[in-house]
Amino acid sequence: MPYRFRDARIQSGKNLAEAAEELFVSKTTLSNWESGRRVPSVEAIEKLADLYGVSVDYLLGRTDQLNPLYEVSESVDPHMLQFLHECPVYVNQSRWGLVDAVNHKICFTDGSELAFSDVMQISMLLPAFQSGSYPLEKPLTRSETENCSRIWLEPISKDETLRQELRGWYNVKNRFVENDFGQRFYFDTYGNKWLAFHTNL
């Protein structure tokens, strides 16, 4: 099967000039790769795969799956990034990165970073392929939370053990929410230390 360098670029929505600039090669070099006049190095093929959000096997014509990992992932609301510290996520339908919730950014293998505010769409591995459990629905706003009598609370912490201990059903009080064990989260820390949801996740 022929290489799919050009097809993958077009599917990613990039024109020749944009892709060449992001790959730090000339348009002529990229055009030569796409036409088969030249063969890129292994390192260049890896960069092409990362840039276009496909697998190396797809670029080389060894599979028809654009990205095997994308097939076992599901869409997640970008508001959930703060819960996903050190988790791999598929970002903006383009490539996989690792969440740095402490610094509010996503880090990629090429050393580049993307701020949470620039994330339009994320996906993560389906539950069968991931270790922890994370909220998948959009959180309630603070005002919505204040109008509920009982909510499901998810602490915001990179400490998975702490999250598991403190997550659960909480009763909504005047200035805080409280669970049956007396643990409290105050409304003035909403969005920084915790988020509320309608349902158990």
Rank of each mutant, 00 (worst) to 15 (best):
G191K: 02
M124Y: 01
L136S: 04
M80P: 01
F185C: 09
G132L: 05
N174V: 06
S112C: 03
Q93F: 07
G168C: 02
Y3R: 12
E86R: 13
W96I: 15
D110G: 04
G36S: 05
K158N: 10
D159L: 13
T199K: 02
L48V: 12
V102W: 15
L114Q: 07
F181M: 07
T141G: 12
S112F: 06
L30Q: 04
P127C: 00
H104N: 09
E137Y: 00
N147D: 09
Y58V: 06
G132C: 02
E74M: 05
Y3K: 10
S112I: 00
S41M: 15
T145E: 13
T29C: 13
H79D: 12
A8T: 03
R9H: 04
G53D: 06
N147H: 06
Q121W: 08
L69S: 07
L23N: 09
V89E: 13
W33K: 02
V56L: 15
D159G: 12
L60R: 12
S157P: 11
E137R: 02
R9N: 02
K47W: 15
G13D: 01
Q130S: 08
Q121R: 09
P155Y: 09
N15K: 05
Y52A: 05
S94A: 11
G168I: 01
K193L: 02
K47I: 08
E137G: 04
R163N: 12
F5N: 05
R175Q: 10
E21K: 12
C87R: 15
L153P: 01
D159V: 13
V177D: 03
A17I: 13
S117A: 15
Y3T: 11
L201E: 02
K193E: 10
Y186S: 07
V25F: 09
Q121I: 02
F185H: 08
L66K: 03
L166A: 07
V99M: 12
L48E: 09
A20P: 03
T161R: 14
R95M: 10
K158A: 13
S157H: 14
F181K: 14
F24H: 10
N103D: 13
D100A: 10
S94R: 15
C107G: 01
F187P: 04
